[in-house]
Structures are given as C-alpha cells and as structure tokens.
Design a protein around this nucleic acid. Structure first.
Lengths: 189, 189
DNA sequence: CGGGCAAAGCTAATTAGATTAGCTTTATGG
DNA sequence: CCATAAAGCTAATCTAATTAGCTTTGCCCG
C-alpha cells in the first residue's frame, strides 16, 4: 500500500481547509483523516491531538491575516491605507471563516516565540502603521488602535454570522464605516 | 431519596451559570448534572440535549442583554444614551462571558416567535433609539446601527479574550471609543 | 547490494461524553 | 386510597478522541 506522505504542515493546512468548508464546529479528526486518505489514528503521527491542531490552525490564520494586511498596505497612506487595511482584514475573514474562528478566545499574550503571538504582534504593527499617518496625539494611539481592531473584528464576525444574507449591503456598510472612522481620526490630528 | 425538583428553566439557568464560571467550552452535561445534584441522564427530562441547552442559554443571554440595555436607556438621550448603551452592553458581556459566547454564530433571523430572534430585535430597537437622538439622514441609520453593533461587540469580545489583564486600561479605552463615536455621529446630524 | 532503523501507517482497544432504553419512585388529584 | 404522569435512576449504546502495539516503507550506510 502506497504511503500518503503527509507532513505536519500538510495536516494543518488540510485541517484549516476543512474548518473553512465545513465550519469550525465540525472540525474533527475523522473527516480530516478521510480527506487525507488515511486512517484517523495516523494523524497522531503529525499532530498531538485536536487541541494541538486547533492551536496550529489559529497560528496559521493569524500569520496569513497579518501577511495579507501587510501586503495590502504597501505604498498606501492616510485614508487609502485605512481602506486597504479594512478590506484586507474583512476579506480574509470572509474567505477563511473557519480559520479565523480558530483564533478567537486565544491568548494574544504569552511566550515571545509563539507563532500566534508573533503574528498578532505583526498585525498590531500594521494597524499602528495605518494610524501613524493620522498624526494622533500619542496618548490617543493606543485607544485608537483598540477601536480599529474592535470595529473591524466586530464587523467581520457579525457579517459572518448572519450578514452573508445581503452581501451587497455588507459591502456598502463597510465603506460607510471606513468613511466614518477616517473622518473621526482626521478630526483628531 | 428526596427529589431534586428541577424544571426546564432551572436547568437552563444552571447551565448558563456553569458556562459563565467554567467557560462556554467546558459546558457539558456531566458537570451540570453534578451541580444540580442529579445523575446525567435525568437532565434529558428537562432539555432535549446539549444543543437544545445551548440554544436556550443563547436565548436567555440575548433576553437579559436586551433587558439590561433597555433599562439603562431609560430617561437618557444623546450622548448620555450612547454612553449608557455602551456600558450596559459591555458590562453584560464582562459579567456573563459564557452566556454571551453562546449567542455567537447563531442566526439572528428566522421564525418570528423564536425568543432569541425576538430578543435580538429588541436589542436592535434599543440601538435604533440611541441613534434617533442624533437625527441622522435616513440612509445612514442602518449603516450606523451596524457600526455600533460591530464596535461594541468587537470591543467586548476582544476585552474578554485578553483585556482582563488591564481592567483599568479597558475602562479608559471604552470611554475613548464612546467619545469618538459620539463626535462622529454628531458631525452627521 | 543488503541490513537495519526510524518514521508513517494500520488495526484493535480504551476512554470520555452524549444519548437512549427501560425500570422505579414520588407526588398529587380525584 | 390509589392511579398515573413526571422525575429520577441504572445499564446500555454510540460517537469521537486517543493510546497501544504491530507492520511496512523508504532510505542511509557499510
């Protein structure tokens, strides 16, 4: 019998894909094994269990998200940067709802070398870069950082929950929110 | 052997309390039964299973949240109302993280008589009441509605995730966000 | 080329949790 | 009193995760 030739990275990738397609709640060892053409216990040669798998999917998601956002910001500034940030952030969550769900409720602080923490920090730095163009008073930046994160996180997760019903409305609502945030930030420069 | 004398409502209340104390992920039939002084299968006399229990906890949470917000809004208007709304909303989630988690990712639309849907509608109406004082152009209200919901939902869930580390900072950040939103909304009246 | 060994798979068994079946007991209304 | 429905219980089943222990493959090195 020919060997499947899996690796830890492939198992995690397939798990992430499964979470996106079937929903994070339906991420389980048995369907993942089937998708990989392998019996369930064989997965334990690559991951330590479902908790490990979930942790790694979260790290993958945060890394991909931070990358997408960083790329989107290239060469942009001011309102343009805010717009690009928002769209990159929300589109990632729309494209990968299962992956993103894996990141929720996981500590963003902890050992410096944890890939999830590292990616979270990178994402925070991108958010900071967007704000830099607005020249906020220094005591405002940390609050503004938190607000942007809250607004986009909230928007994206609520859209995922029930907003796919009106994709049209959702796009308009995001544009409106970006505009609202941009004006408010400029008013504080 | 004396009877425990449970009821459906009591089981749901105890489940909600357990979710708050132990975390929604640790909500399970066995510990719930133990807390109620009963063997696990006895719970099935009151709820149909864990999915039913989760659904009911979500409905309870949304109902309590809508009530708290409605009460907080009594006799307030303008910025005062926005402030009260935000604090009521976020404090509910801080007080009942497990309950609130139960509501996430559940359809807000569906049969009119579903208590969860009904409570969700009530909460939306309160949000609408806050906005009414700002006299927005009608085409803006639906977007503003969505933005407020996104911002507070995002803020509260992210605070729950890792923000309990600096409760001080969190309070200040919320005040800042309320101020930001208030100014932005007034600018559109 | 052939031996040997670590990694990758497999089957079978175990554990944990939810759920179902079917029996027993309590409370209570007639 | 006593009939009966509801509330509990024990025992059994089912599903999903995990562990144990065996087998096979691929590949490095003599």
């Amino acid at each position: 019998m020919p060997r499947a030739g899996l690796s830890r990275a492939e198992v995690i990738r397939a798990g992430a894909a499964l979470a996106d397609e079937a929903g994070y709640a339906n991420l389980a060892m048995a369907p993942l094994a089937e998708r990989l053409g392998v019996r369930t216990p064989s997965l334990y040669k690559h991951v330590e269990g479902i908790a490990d798998l979930q942790q790694e999917i979260a790290a993958l998601a945060m890394t991909e998200l931070a990358d997408r956002v960083r790329d989107a910001l290239q060469g942009r500034s001011g309102r343009d940067a805010l717009d690009a940030f928002a769209r990159a952030f929300c589109s990632y969550i729309a494209d990968h709802p299962g992956r993103y769900t894996a990141t929720l409720g996981r500590p963003t602080h902890g050992p410096e070398e944890d890939p999830l923490v590292k990616a979270g920090t990178r994402l925070l730095e991108s958010t900071g870069a967007v704000l830099r163009d607005y020249d906020l008073p220094p005591e405002d930046t940390t609050h503004a950082l938190r607000m942007l994160r809250s607004a986009f996180h909230g928007f994206a997760t609520l859209s995922g929950a029930d907003g796919f019903q009106w994709p049209e409305q959702t796009a308009t609502a995001l544009t409106w929110m970006i505009d609202f945030l941009d004006r408010g930030l400029r008013a504080r420069s």
